[in-house]
Nucleic acid binder design. Structure first.
Lengths: 226, 226
DNA sequence: CGGCGGCTTGATCGGTCTCAAGTACGGTGG
DNA sequence: CCACCGTACTTGAGACCGATCAAGCCGCCG
C-alpha cells in the first residue's frame, strides 16, 4: 500500500522537512490529488509533529495511528482539542502559525503536504478551494460539538466521548481506545480519576462493558446518550 | 447611511425572506461586494433570526445591535456559542442547515444575504472563495478560544469574558454590556449567580469597577489575564 | 406609589478535584 | 519461566468550588 509515497523508517524531528515532493496533478486536481502532493513520515509515540506558534508550512493527514492536537495553558493545564484518526486531516489552522501543538498518541504514519502548494492550487482550482473550505468547516463543527460537551456533567462527557469514538470506529458497538486516560481527561476537561470513576459507574449501570482498560463494549446506547 | 439597502420598519418573522435582492457586482466582486447583495432587516430584542435545523439559505451581517447564536440541549440548558457585534458575520454554518439558533439580544439591524448567490460567486471568483474560507476560519479560531475558556475556573471565565468584550469594543478600557447576566452565564457555562459573584469579587479586588450593572471599567488588566 | 424584571447576596448541597494508596499489566533481565 | 520494575489505571477519603434554593435590592415604567 501507499506506493506513491516513501515511508521514512527513521522517525524525523518535527522541524525536518519531508524529503520528497511529488509534482502536482496539474489541472484535474481535486480532493484526492492533495494526497499525491505529500510525503509519508513516521512518528513515534509521544513525538511532537509540530508545536504551537510554529509556522504552519504543512498540512497533515493521518495514514495510521492517532494524533492529538492540544494547547498548554499558562498554569500548566493541557487542553486536548481533538484526536485525529486514520483518514483525518489536521494542521489546517488558518493564519501562518499553528494555534495548537500536535503529537503522535501512538506510533503513527502521517502524510505531510506542503501548505503553499495546496493554497496555490486552490487559487486556480475552485474544487480544491471548496475542499479546503469544507475541511475547515468540518473542523468547526467538531469544535462546536466539543464545546457543547464541556458544559455537561462528568458522566455525560465520558458517555459522549464513548459514543463519539464508537461512531468513528469500524465496529460502532465497541471501541479500542488508542489513548491513555490522561488524554481522555484532558480532552474532556476532567481529571484522570473522574474519568476512571465514570467508566466504572457506566459499567456498573450496564451501559458499557470494560473487558480491558483500553477496550469498551457498548451495551446500552440510550443510557449513554440520555 | 446604508443607501444601498432598505431597512424594514416592521420587524419581520424570521422565516420571511428579504424583500429586495440586488444584482451582484459582476466580476470585480470581492469581500465588500457581498454587502451589496443583501437587504437590511430590523429585529426586535429577543426576536428569532433563524432556528436550529432551519435551512441555511442566508448569511447575515450585523449592522447595529447584538446577536447571540445558541443551542438548547435536551435537558433545557442553553449554550450560547457566540455574541455577534456590529461588523460581524454569522450564519456561515456549512451544510445546508444551521447548527445553531440566532436571536437578537437587543433591537438590531441585520444585513441578510442570499447564500446561494455568495456560493455561486465564490465558484467564479477566488477572492470571494478565499474570503468565505477566512470567515469560517476566524469563526473556528473564536470557537477554539471559547473552548479553552470552558475548562477554566469561574473567576477566570468571567475575567476572560471581560477582556474579550473589551478587545471588541471601541474603548478597550471599558465595556458596555449589551446582554443580560443570563446570557453571559450561558456563554460561560456558569449560573447567573456565579457570574454576579465573580464580578463582585473582581470589583472588590480592584480589577474592575462596576459603575452600573451593565458597565465595566477595567482597572487592573494583569489581574484579569492572570 | 406599586409592581416587575434584572441583579445581588446568603446558606446549604452536591459533584468534581485533590491527595493518597492500592492494583493490574507489559516489558526486561535473570 | 519467573521476578522485578515502571507505567497505567482504579479506588477511597476529604476539601473545595460552583449549583441550587431562597431572600432581598435596585432601577424603571406605569
Amino acid at each position: 500500500m501507499l506506493p506513491q509515497t516513501s515511508t521514512g523508517t527513521i522517525a524525523p524531528k518535527s522541524s525536518s522537512r519531508p524529503s520528497a515532493k511529488r509534482p502536482s496533478a496539474k489541472s484535474e486536481a481535486h480532493l484526492d490529488s492533495l494526497e499525491l502532493m505529500g510525503a509519508a513520515m513516521a512518528f513515534a509515540r509521544n513525538q511532537e509533529i509540530y508545536g504551537e506558534d510554529e509556522p504552519a508550512d504543512y498540512l497533515y493527514k493521518v495514514i495510521s495511528g492517532t494524533v492529538r492536537t492540544y494547547k498548554i495553558l499558562s498554569d500548566g493545564r493541557r487542553q486536548i482539542a481533538a484526536f485525529h484518526l486514520p483518514g483525518d486531516m489536521f494542521g489546517l489552522a488558518v493564519g501562518d502559525h499553528h494555534a495548537f501543538s500536535a503529537e503522535a498518541v501512538t506510533d503513527s504514519n502521517i502524510l505531510v503536504i506542503k501548505r503553499s502548494a495546496v493554497v496555490a492550487l486552490a487559487g486556480r482550482n475552485t474544487d480544491v478551494a471548496r475542499e479546503l473550505w469544507m475541511l475547515t468547516a468540518r473542523e468547526l463543527q467538531r469544535m462546536q460539538r466539543h464545546m457543547i460537551l464541556l458544559i455537561k456533567s462528568a458522566q455525560e462527557r465520558v458517555a459522549a466521548f464513548i459514543l463519539e469514538m464508537a461512531e468513528r470506529s469500524q465496529d460502532h458497538r465497541a471501541v479500542e481506545l488508542s489513548m491513555p486516560r490522561q488524554d481522555i481527561a484532558d480532552y474532556l476537561g476532567l481529571t484522570i480519576e473522574t474519568v476512571s470513576r465514570m467508566l466504572t459507574h457506566l459499567a456498573e449501570n450496564a451501559a458499557i462493558e470494560l473487558p480491558s482498560s483500553r477496550r469498551i463494549v457498548l451495551r446500552n446506547r440510550s443510557a449513554l446518550s440520555g
